[in-house]
């Protein structure tokens, strides 16, 4: 098996399995149990666990600290890191900190604008952008050097990921943008939540036309809808989210007490369809504050049990 890092996620892909990841949002407090409990809920049904980094710009326990908790449970964390809050000194430093706990996966993001969060008056940093962070981690790993050129003693060994939103505008740049991330060294991609399957498949076709699916593992992002209210919110309020009318209508036509169940059904149907979409190498299930449903989704989508790799 040809792998560059000790990452379990990389091994799953390299062995040709459909990978499954999910995520845990760290708590709004310092209680360590919260992250441990969330990880317990999903640990048998996923290959690796993303830990979000102050998502939507709301202050939470640090992604790195929560990743360490998960790592100490013997699980496989994916450290999400946004360029909004740290300059290149802090980013490199935190990468080393993560590497010291043998955290072997990183997802490089720019992060939501701080105006969405609870510290709207704060500065944002953006010393690097997400692509340059991908380049930075790859440089630290592959060259064993800091951006400043000095040698790193025991360089990080991280499998490097990035995000892609097939639904944001301008659409014609969405594939070139992914190509750019691959050029920068991204090895896996987790996409934005997919509801518009036709548009996603069109994007994947363009990815395949350029052969990008052979250069990077693409994980389809899935978020089950809990209710029609959530669907409407995602459709109308979340930038870069594409929720087709028929998804909203389907939930509208479902009695309130059955909407969550229907939301899971929609999610599982989408996964079934995308399993046969060439180039989809895995699924990233973002069940927001609904981690307990991840096992059910994975099982219903026929992705359980998870494969073992060395």
């Amino acid at each position: 098996m040809n792998v560059k890092t000790p990452s379990k996620l990389e091994k799953i892909f390299a062995a040709g399995h459909v990978a499954v990841t999910s995520e845990c949002g760290p708590p709004r407090g310092s209680d360590p149990d919260s992250i441990v409990k969330k990880a317990e809920l999903i640990k048998n049904h996923v290959d690796a666990i993303n830990v979000t980094d102050n998502q939507t710009s709301v202050v939470r326990m640090s992604s790195l600290a929560a990743c360490i908790r998960i790592k100490l449970m013997g699980l496989e964390p994916i450290l999400q890191m946004v360029t909004r809050d740290r300059n290149r000194i802090a980013l490199q430093s935190d990468i080393l900190g993560a590497a010291s706990f043998d955290i072997h996966n990183i997802l490089c993001l720019s992060g939501d604008h701080q105006s969405f969060g609870d510290n709207k008056q704060g500065q944002n940093v953006h010393d690097l952008d997400s692509m340059q962070l991908v380049q930075t981690v790859r440089y630290m790993r592959d060259e064993g050097k800091f951006l400043g050129g000095e040698e790193i003693k025991r360089p990080p060994r991280m499998f490097v990921g990035a995000a892609a939103n097939p639904f944001a505008d301008p659409f014609e740049i969405r594939v070139p943008r992914l190509a750019k991330k691959v050029t920068c060294g991204a090895e896996f991609i987790q996409t934005q939540c997919i509801y518009n399957l036709d548009r996603f498949e069109e994007w994947m076709k363009r990815i395949r036309d350029r052969g990008l699916h052979e250069k990077v593992y693409i994980m389809a992002g899935m978020t089950p809808m809990k209710s029609v209210g959530m669907a409407r919110y995602m459709k109308n309020r979340v930038p870069g989210m594409d929720v087709p009318d028929d998804v909203v209508k389907r939930l509208e036509g479902t009695p309130k007490e059955k909407q969550a169940e229907e939301g899971i059904k929609i999610c599982v149907e989408a996964m079934e369809r995308l399993k046969s979409c060439k180039g989809v190498a895995g699924f990233h299930i973002m069940a927001i504050e609904w981690e307990e449903k991840v096992p059910e989704i994975v099982e219903k989508a026929g992705l359980f049990p998870r494969p073992a790799v060395d």
Partner: peptide, 20 residues
């Protein structure tokens, strides 16, 4: 660009407008 991205656009670009 609200995030001064040098290799943008970010995922928040929608119908020609910024996510902010």
């Amino acid at each position: 660009c609200a995030k001064r991205l040098l290799n943008g656009p970010c995922g928040g670009s929608s119908k020609g407008k910024c996510e902010i």
